[in-house]
Design a protein around this nucleic acid. Sequence first.
DNA 1: TAGATTGTTAATCGATTAACAATC
DNA 2: TAGATTGTTAATCGATTAACAATC
Lengths: 206, 206
Amino acid sequence: MAKPNIPDIVVSRLPLYLQTLNHLLREGEEVISSEELSEQVGIPAVQIRKDLSYFGGFGVKGKGYDIIHLIDSLRSILNLNQIWPMVIVGVGNLGQALIRYQGFARQGFEIVLALDINPKIIGTEIAGIVVQDVGLMESELKRSDIRIALLTVPANAAQSTADALVANGIKAILNYAPIILKLPEGVRVANIDPVLKLEHLTYYLS
Amino acid sequence: MAKPNIPDIVVSRLPLYLQTLNHLLREGEEVISSEELSEQVGIPAVQIRKDLSYFGGFGVKGKGYDIIHLIDSLRSILNLNQIWPMVIVGVGNLGQALIRYQGFARQGFEIVLALDINPKIIGTEIAGIVVQDVGLMESELKRSDIRIALLTVPANAAQSTADALVANGIKAILNYAPIILKLPEGVRVANIDPVLKLEHLTYYLS
DNA sequence: TAGATTGTTAATCGATTAACAATC
DNA sequence: TAGATTGTTAATCGATTAACAATC
């Protein structure tokens, strides 16, 4: 399956273009040239055009890109014309903040299931979601079509939790635990570790 | 100033090596070959050796790398042999979660100043930090040596807040707002936007 | 039509990887 | 010494960029 010939690094830039185009649309813009978009997004115009050309021709020569049309196209390419239900495992400080975060739903990502192992947390309600026992993972995932998980458990529980998620049909994991997960082919992982980013930054702070 | 000749992509991998080496050390390992490290970190052994060789020779031919020594070396390269004080601006759900997050302090990053604009939040105490009025940014930063900021304000306040931070001596920003900041040369920005990562993942979910 | 801007081909640049000498 | 593994040079690979034809 899948799209074997498009570089992943190209795909990784599409959400950035989409974010910026949404911003421009909210500001009332209707058409934009690759040069103007380049200024906003900080990526060379020729690279933007090359990236888009992998998927087709979305612009009008001499004019630029119709913003609404390009947003539609990018959303379609990225499979964003649907609501993506998500499970979150680990409802500590970070998990709670993510459940409350409005930015997910705004872009079509909805946390519909929250799991934790702590009896004090199980049963509590956060932003309309009642936290379930992680022991119910199998039954809850079985009767859902959730394919994306947010992993916010402590580092020492992350690998085993990820394994359980994958065993129950999860295909993509946004991993907030500071470890490298080992998962089978076909499962996509994206890591969010602010400490790694900070350590990268400090290299440049003399 | 700075190190002009080492590719940024090489620098970006060093924190990953460090994280894995710390993990191995905790498990009682003392020496590791680039091949074994490669398996743990998911990066080819030859690339690990090449990356390290930009900074010197840290291994022993025929043996591998002394883990403690390599950790020390990487920490020194990344300027981690000090506590980095940080300011956080925006103490909403996410800001509060980050203030409570133990992972920063564990790696030598300490939030010492928290600022917000909301009168209901100003004055509250979170994990030992009393939230200050963002209007005090200038005076508070002036009498500190804080060079790193965590930016967790709403998107529409992010650019102006970042400008103010930079005007008061901040040199590195970990940006949690879903916008691209425009900042002067010499200020480093790292973006943490989970939505962009999710949109990248969904591309591969057929 | 003239001007502007896209989409694409070809060249360049830089990163990854293969090969292997050095050496513990 | 023989075996193992590093560190480095050179080759390869892939991504970025320059140039420009196409065309609105």
